[in-house]
């Protein structure tokens, strides 16, 4: 398939991404309302934020509106690609986004909060179209088993249903969702992609899985202090450059310094330098991987996937800005939490 047309469109969309200067201006706003006001100046958020009024500007609402703008961008790209096979893959790729929403809802259900109020018409339409479940039923779920039961018909249902018991924590269920996402993506990658698309996406997503696994071993060992044998269930059983034995060795490392040295010996030495948060390092490295893949295979899905990656990062950055402004942090402080990829120029 020829990506000239799609890439031209993506080029135009990229021009609307925020750059460091825009973020600086956003961080300098005195109130959350002013941040929203400023954001509305940007063409990509004009419509997404248009229906938000001053009083409604709590975090959840802004977050949802931003996510909907991400979904709109995805829909744009999806509609522009005619090849049904690639469309199938794109759906699997974007599932991450829907699963993100499901995780948030699941979290609320675990906390015994009413999820009905979260569902705006836009969100219902979005989830209803993508997941093919009865949203009316889903939003009235009061308990976790009910919630899982109402997901019947989706691919994730059987996995959640057979994993859930009363002892299972939200964390474990979220891991199951991640596992579902990556296994499903890997399956549809080999099934629907070929040539440059397959090469580019296998590279990008393979490295993403490797990095994610390292990041989780690190996290679970150093912060959560989880016993080694319990860590495996949180890892994705796929690999690109990191051999499985190497990953198992990392899991079995006796101490954090030993883990550090094992990572340093891996193909991903230098990614996690310990100076910034794991997520920051992960995001920076992934941006590099995307850009490299795009440079090597310009006529592939690389451009589209890079755009979606960048947009996702931007959404999470804006959420951080809103939080920072709400808690009256200094603009420089807020900037430190942002993952500015510079994707606009790539």
């Amino acid at each position: 398939m020829d990506y000239a047309g799609v890439n031209a469109k993506i080029q135009a969309m990229k021009g609307r991404l925020l750059d460091a200067g825009d973020y600086g201006a956003l961080c300098a706003q005195p109130t959350v309302g002013a941040v929203a006001e400023k954001l509305r100046e940007s063409p990509s958020y004009q419509s997404a934020l248009s229906y938000l009024e001053g009083d409604e500007l709590h975090r959840g609402m802004i977050e949802q509106s931003l996510m909907l703008s991400l979904a709109a961008d995805f829909r744009n790209i999806y509609n522009f690609i005619g090849d049904f096979k690639i469309r199938r893959y794109l759906s699997a790729l974007f599932l991450n986004f829907e699963l993100g929403i499901i995780k948030k809802l699941l979290c609320m259900v675990y906390d015994e909060r009413d999820i009905g109020s979260v569902f705006t018409d836009e969100l219902s339409r979005l989830l209803g179209d993508d997941l093919e479940v009865d949203i009316g039923k889903l939003k009235n779920s009061k308990t976790v088993p009910e919630f899982i039961d109402n997901l019947k018909g989706t691919g994730m249902h059987s996995m959640l249903a057979s994993a859930y018991t009363e002892q299972r924590s939200l964390f474990e269920m979220e891991t199951q969702l991640d596992l579902y996402y990556y296994m499903n993506l890997s399956k549809s990658q080999t099934k629907w992609l070929a040539g440059g698309d397959l090469a580019a996406m296998a590279e990008i997503k393979g490295i993403e899985v490797d990095l994610r696994n390292i990041m989780w071993v690190w996290r679970l060992k150093s912060y959560y202090k989880l016993p080694d044998i319990m860590i495996y269930a949180h890892l994705i059983p796929l690999s690109k450059r990191l051999r499985k034995e190497a990953l198992v060795a990392m899991v079995q490392a006796k101490s954090v310094p030993e883990l550090e040295s094992l990572v340093a010996q891996s193909p991903y030495a230098g990614v996690f330098d310990g100076k910034e948060s794991l997520e920051m390092s992960f995001g920076r490295e992934m941006a590099r991987v995307y850009k490299r893949a795009l440079a090597m295979r310009p006529n592939s899905l690389a451009a589209a996937s890079l755009y979606l990656f960048a947009k996702e990062a931007e959404v999470s950055n804006i959420v951080s800005v809103v939080e920072g402004v709400r808690y009256k942090l200094a603009p420089e402080e807020i900037m430190k939490f942002l993952n500015i990829l510079g994707a606009r120029s790539a």
Binding site: L235, P237, E245
Partner: peptide, 17 residues
């Protein structure tokens, strides 16, 4: 017993040795 396919993959990947 039985286990989900993906979890079985984890078993195969990391614990077979």
């Amino acid at each position: 017993g039985k286990m989900p396919l993906s979890n079985n993959k984890q078993l195969e990947a990391f614990l077979y040795v």
